[in-house]
């Protein structure tokens, strides 16, 4: 447990923040600055999903100098490097300590129900008891549940399936061919390391966004920040639904600041195929649209 919150005081505070990751802790910090009493409930430890739901080789896609939270930022010696998952855990944990965040760890929230008419607050059920709060901040993360396409149900039972949350490293996988479904950062990174492990990889690729890691000596994230792309708000785009559906970029954070795209994987021996479109009679069917999605990735 971090900070000074106790079970007794939790029931009397105004605001509950659910989740002690970077968002929840940043929220806690700014609430504290405004003198708003609050508590942060965390199902496990601080930075829990970074401890328990990341593959071994994962590094952030943003350079260290961009890794900053309200009142705290990267202080290491490699501003152009990319943090490993373990380093992210250390970073977030240090933030919780520095900000004296009132975190109750091992307190999983099991339900949030509004009390009566709106404005009366919320009844929050947890594994440590029932509490009432005036306001609830959900900071549980945007990627807590894997989205597994329904066609996965048609996969023959003998084929072991993993999601990015359950995958750790290639050694976890049986010997033999591996199908990686998805052509954004995760799919490309996993395809690369699984292929390197000697398991021949087929990578199913739909629409994607290709980017160089470095352009004119600067990280692509520097350009996106400098050009205002990262400041664009969803309210300001013409078609928000379409904007939300734009795939996240194909990127990887490596010490060499290398670009990872389909060409790199093909040279490595990965077989790149179209989007996984169906499974019939135990055979995977791939879309014939690969050429066009590759064109679209460069024409945007």
């Amino acid at each position: 447990m971090t900070g000074c919150a106790t079970r007794q005081s939790a029931g009397a505070v105004d605001v509950v923040v659910i989740g002690a990751g970077h968002s929840g802790l940043a929220m806690s910090h700014v609430l504290g600055q405004r003198g708003i009493e609050h508590v942060v409930l965390e199902r496990g430890e601080v930075a829990n999903s970074w401890r328990t739901e990341r593959w071994d080789s994962l590094r952030l896609l943003t350079p260290n100098w961009m890794t900053r939270l309200p009142g705290y930022s990267y202080r290491g010696t490699e501003p152009d490097g990319y943090m490993s998952a373990g380093e992210v855990v250390d970073f977030i944990s240090a933030y919780a300590t520095v900000t004296s965040a009132p975190v109750l760890t091992h307190t999983a929230v099991t339900g949030v129900v509004p009390i009566g008419e709106s404005g009366n607050g919320y009844q929050v059920s947890t594994t440590q008891g029932e509490w009432r709060y005036r306001a609830v901040v959900l900071a549980t993360g945007a990627c807590n549940l894997s989205v597994v396409p329904r066609l996965a149900e048609a996969m023959p039972a003998g084929v072991e399936q993993f999601t990015a949350q359950t995958y750790r490293n290639p050694q976890q996988l049986a010997e033999g061919g591996v199908l990686v479904v998805g052509g954004s950062a995760t799919g490309l990174q996993l395809a690369r390391e699984i292929q390197e492990s000697g398991r021949p990889v087929t990578l199913a690729v739909g629409e994607h966004v290709r980017m160089p890691r470095v352009y004119r000596g600067r990280d692509i994230q520097w350009w996106m920040l400098a050009s205002g792309v990262l400041d664009q708000r969803i309210e300001d785009v013409d078609e928000p639904d379409r904007a939300r559906r734009v795939p996240s970029p194909q990127l990887v954070g490596t010490p060499e600041r290398a670009t990872l795209d389909l060409n790199v994987l093909r040279i490595q021996g990965v077989e790149v195929v179209g989007r996984l479109a169906g499974i019939r009679d135990g055979k995977a069917q791939f879309s014939g649209s690969l050429r066009n999605v590759c064109s679209l990735a460069d024409l945007k």
Binding site: E207, G274, R275, A277, G278, R280, Q285, S287, G288, S289, N292, S295, L296, L299
Partner: peptide, 24 residues
């Protein structure tokens, strides 16, 4: 030429027959 390439690519992206042929 690039705008024309983009037209052709976008047309494939939204084409019913292209989809019928390329997907099961």
């Amino acid at each position: 030429a690039e705008q024309i390439a983009a037209l052709v690519a976008q047309s494939q992206k939204r084409s019913a027959v292209f989809d019928v042929i390329t997907n099961p």
